[in-house]
Computed example of a mutant assay.
Amino acid sequence: MLVLVVDSSTPAVTAALAEVTDRGVVMRAERRAVDAKAHGELLAPAVDAVLGEGGAHPRELGAIVAGLGPGPFTGLRVGLVTAASMGQTLGIPTYGVCSLDALGQADATGRVLAATDARRKEIYWAVYEAGARVTEPDVDLPGAVAERVAALGVGAAVGEGAHRYADVLGLPVRDEPRYPPAAALVGLAAERIRAKLPGERLTPLYLRRPDAVAAAGRKPVLR
């Protein structure tokens, strides 16, 4: 089954085409561009590009996998709206995966911290052991995370959030992955895809209120 993979939970805009079979997952094409301010402009062309490179028409897709975050409000919703709209238009199921879980699949000895940049000098984070999540996704100041992971016996970190605040976290940071790998995202959804489970509502993991909020009321006019 051909599966489209999208993730926009970080500054990296990712689109990929994968083939999920009973024997495993084969990546046919993948595009990634890093620009925190251009998710809306970059994702649709990336989807077109991976379909073209993989020799697939949208109507040949059997499912869509999307990274649910956590991530900043504006960028994250680009990927989820794209996935949900395509799923509805094509009549195919959509499956969500926590984007941190894809980072947490990185091979590491012992426990690893997966962290992405949450802006406001904070990080989204969770701890993993052998790919299994040990803590629930959260958002905190790097200093607070450093205290938590020290108590949990974490020995390494992955993700661009870990790179950005490596001096505060005090952990060895692996070069890769910096962003949620498409292969890990589809791999985490592969069992659901093979079982042809019903599609899921793509509920974003914001973990906090959006940066932009509606005005509470009209401002008084000074004369």
Results as ranks from 00 to 15, higher is better:
residue 87 G to P: 01
residue 88 Q to L: 13
residue 88 Q to H: 13
residue 91 G to D: 04
residue 92 I to F: 10
residue 103 L to N: 03
residue 106 A to S: 07
residue 107 D to G: 01
residue 110 G to S: 05
residue 111 R to K: 15
residue 112 V to S: 01
residue 113 L to K: 07
residue 117 D to P: 00
residue 123 I to K: 00
residue 124 Y to L: 02
residue 124 Y to P: 01
residue 125 W to F: 15
residue 125 W to L: 09
residue 126 A to S: 12
residue 127 V to C: 11
residue 127 V to H: 05
residue 129 E to M: 05
residue 131 G to C: 05
residue 132 A to H: 10
residue 133 R to L: 04
residue 134 V to H: 06
residue 135 T to D: 11
residue 137 P to N: 10
residue 138 D to T: 08
residue 141 L to D: 02
residue 144 A to P: 08
residue 144 A to N: 11
residue 145 V to T: 10
residue 147 E to K: 14
residue 148 R to G: 09
residue 149 V to T: 12
residue 155 G to E: 14
residue 155 G to R: 15
residue 157 A to D: 05
residue 162 A to Q: 09
residue 162 A to G: 07
residue 163 H to T: 08
residue 163 H to I: 00
residue 163 H to L: 13
residue 164 R to A: 14
residue 166 A to D: 04
residue 166 A to F: 02
residue 170 G to L: 07
residue 170 G to F: 05
residue 175 D to G: 00
residue 177 P to V: 06
residue 177 P to A: 13
residue 183 A to Q: 11
residue 186 V to K: 06
residue 187 G to N: 08
residue 188 L to P: 15
residue 190 A to C: 06
residue 190 A to R: 13
residue 195 A to T: 04
residue 196 K to L: 12
residue 197 L to M: 11
residue 198 P to R: 00
residue 200 E to L: 03
residue 201 R to M: 04
residue 201 R to K: 12
residue 201 R to W: 04
residue 211 D to C: 04
residue 213 V to H: 07
residue 213 V to Q: 15
residue 214 A to M: 14
